[in-house]
């Protein structure tokens, strides 16, 4: 499988979902082109991009030489495959390019299904809930305590589930990873949100295993390179007690976020 040099383009921005893919690509040591998208100008809603991802969201990945024949003719070169949704992209990358199981597990193992569960747990739970937490803690024009409480509390519940899982892995298997005995796309997908828990108003005091695991994942070769694609995060290591810095970042993002919501409403 995947004997020839991969020909991949990643459409991304410095966001938790975008960096999941650049980190996986770095760890798998796969060459790829980066196409940064400017969220501030709503580039992800332009027709050329919605032809790649009809949902108009980041990230998306194009495999220009996927491992299957063109549907029109088996002799012509394969048509590019466009993939949306970070969970689907990660599952594709490990199915097709992770033959040595650096970030995944044998398909007929119990660990494979555990990995799929935790990836989907992040896609369906932690991502959407912490995403709303970000919105109501940082960007909403009006402070609404019960909306903040709802999403901060649900995110905390999810971190409690993660803390319990890491405890189980440590005690039963002597492992520091979410699944099995090595880092996998389950760790990558959760980590890209977990490093911004505090930004979403979720303090991780008392989540000792989650905090240690965050450091462990940060030390995996390829993570540092991948997390800085397409550029280093403006929030990286930010002192969230620095009101001037936080306000500057929020004001810079709030404008295009609220404008994006307005455009969606009128679409």
């Amino acid at each position: 499988m995947a004997a020839k040099t991969p020909n991949l383009t990643l459409y991304t921005a410095q966001t938790p979902n975008g960096t999941k893919i650049s980190i996986a690509l770095s760890i798998l040591n796969l060459p790829y082109k980066v196409h940064p998208l400017n969220l501030a100008t709503h580039e992800q809603k332009l027709p050329w991009f919605t032809a790649i991802n009809p949902n108009g969201r980041l990230p998306a990945l194009t495999d220009h030489s996927p491992p299957f024949p063109s549907s029109s003719s088996s002799s012509s070169p394969p048509e590019p495959l466009h993939i949306m949704e970070s969970g689907a992209i990660l599952l594709y990358l490990v199915s097709n390019y992770d033959t040595s199981q650096k970030l995944s597990f044998s398909k007929d193992s119990k660990e494979h299904w555990e990995m799929v569960q935790w990836v989907f747990w992040q896609n369906a739970g932690l991502g959407p809930m912490q995403g709303q937490s970000n919105h109501f803690v940082r960007y909403s024009p009006e402070k609404i305590p019960y909306a903040v409480g709802r999403y901060v509390n649900e995110s905390r519940r999810l971190y409690t589930v993660l803390e319990g899982r890491l405890k189980e892995q440590e005690e039963k298997r002597g492992s520091g990873w979410i699944v099995g005995d090595h880092v996998s796309i389950a760790d990558i997908t959760v980590w890209c949100w977990a490093i911004y828990a505090e930004w979403g108003g979720i303090g991780l005091e008392g989540f000792e295993r989650v905090r240690k695991w965050r450091e462990r994942v940060a030390g995996v070769e390829g993570v540092e390179e991948g997390r800085n694609v397409p550029e280093p995060s403006g929030l990286r290591d930010a002192d969230l007690g620095d009101e001037v810095l936080v306000r500057g970042y929020v004001e810079g993002s709030r404008k295009w976020i609220l404008e994006g919501m307005r455009r969606d409403a009128e679409a």
Binding site: N55, P66, P67, F68, L81, I83, M84, E85, S86, G87, A88, L91, Y92, S95, N96, F120, N123, A124, G127, P128
Partner: peptide
């Protein structure tokens, strides 16, 4: 095949996250 499975995964991931 991998192509169909990937297309299915996209729409399932969009369903659960969106």
């Amino acid at each position: 095949d991998l192509e169909e499975r990937t297309l299915i995964n996209e729409w399932i991931a969009f369903q659960i996250s969106g």
